[in-house]
Simulated scan of single mutants.
Amino acid sequence: MERPGGREAGLGVGAVAQRLGVAASTLRTWDRRYGIGPSGRSPGGHRRYTPSDLARLAVMQRQILAGVPPGEAARVALDEPPGEPAPRAHGAGGRRVPLAGTAAPPRAAAVRGLARAAMALDQPAMAGTVRDALRRDGVAAAWDGLIVPVLAGIGRKHRATGECVEVEHLLSTVLLGCLAELTTPSGAADGRPVLLACAPEEQHSLPVYALAAALAEAGVPTRILGARVPPTALAAAIRRAGPGGVFIWSQTAETGEPTWLDGLPPSRPPYRLVVGGPGWARGRLPASAALVGTIPEAVAELISLPSHS
């Protein structure tokens, strides 16, 4: 919609969604939850986004892509003085993945390559890049240096646009397959196993599989219980397996309440309890639980068990 002087009188939600590379449903959510919505009106009385509205949306989008929570990003955008309209083809749209803090070459090239392959849903290219990194760098280094940056970038893109669910799902499937190739038992492993589980209701299980592959590199036997493991099931596994270590992952604050850890059964000889992930309420963890922040830290804790060292 154009005025005689060539200035935009306003854009509807569909046009703004296409211009910014953001789903229309995401724009409506931002309007409803945070008040980042259209302030103009068409001659027919329909709500329209003005140039100032577009500028605020661009600020909010940049903030989210930088890792700022949407609510805080909205506050920053609303505090911005009115500016120029947002440019077309913003980085959140199209096939670009925002890769904040990408590693130095040559690893940066692999990160960009994996991100491009993921956005193209190119499964063979994804698998080839991941296998090369696992073979060249080892599991822990490949996880931190290649896989985590791409997963984090896709997550930022999803929060900013509401899209890329299919990208994350396919990449996760590829990663699980590549990691499983390294954890397939080749024979009977000596020593007490390490039980690997996610906290109750925690569905982000990829770090558990990455840790299993990293421990396999070190010759440590594991048993992977996977996502959403109830405390009663974990307790039963401890009694059955007699593990040397128990590792529990929590990705989100909703799954990080740790009071149930005190109810895990003891065993003889005792096992080491290790928890990892950003979800845990750190101030309420029991003294018996060692908290780790990365996969390499978890490996260091778990390979130092007496039965494995």
Results as ranks from 00 to 15, higher is better:
residue 274 V to T: 05
residue 305 L to G: 04
residue 173 T to Y: 15
residue 161 T to N: 02
residue 78 L to Y: 09
residue 107 R to N: 07
residue 85 P to E: 11
residue 179 L to D: 06
residue 91 G to M: 10
residue 269 P to W: 00
residue 169 H to A: 12
residue 67 G to S: 05
residue 16 V to Q: 05
residue 6 G to F: 05
residue 279 G to N: 03
residue 82 P to F: 01
residue 36 I to M: 14
residue 259 T to G: 07
residue 96 R to E: 15
residue 289 A to D: 07
residue 263 G to D: 13
residue 128 G to Q: 12
residue 119 M to A: 12
residue 145 G to L: 07
residue 299 V to T: 04
residue 23 A to Q: 15
residue 225 L to V: 00
residue 24 A to P: 09
residue 286 P to C: 09
residue 151 L to D: 07
residue 188 A to E: 15
residue 150 V to N: 04
residue 33 R to D: 01
residue 128 G to I: 07
residue 99 L to W: 08
residue 16 V to C: 05
residue 201 E to L: 14
residue 191 G to F: 00
residue 144 D to V: 09
residue 295 I to H: 02
residue 26 T to F: 09
residue 225 L to C: 11
residue 280 W to R: 13
residue 113 G to Y: 13
residue 273 L to W: 10
residue 81 P to Y: 04
residue 189 A to P: 12
residue 183 T to C: 06
residue 245 G to L: 08
residue 69 P to E: 09
residue 266 P to Y: 00
residue 254 E to Y: 00
residue 47 R to S: 02
residue 86 A to H: 05
residue 185 P to M: 05
residue 160 A to D: 02
residue 104 A to Q: 09
residue 253 A to Q: 13
residue 67 G to H: 01
residue 268 R to H: 15
residue 147 I to N: 03
residue 307 S to F: 08
residue 189 A to Q: 15
residue 49 Y to V: 05
residue 227 A to E: 14
residue 201 E to P: 11
residue 30 W to A: 01
residue 152 A to Y: 02
residue 306 P to Q: 09
residue 275 V to N: 03
residue 205 S to G: 13
residue 33 R to T: 03
residue 78 L to K: 12
residue 165 V to K: 03
residue 99 L to Y: 08
residue 139 V to E: 04
residue 60 M to V: 08
residue 17 A to E: 01
residue 283 G to Y: 09
residue 190 D to E: 13
residue 206 L to P: 10
residue 131 R to S: 15
residue 9 A to R: 15
residue 182 L to K: 09
residue 112 R to L: 12
residue 245 G to E: 11
residue 225 L to Y: 07
residue 219 G to S: 01
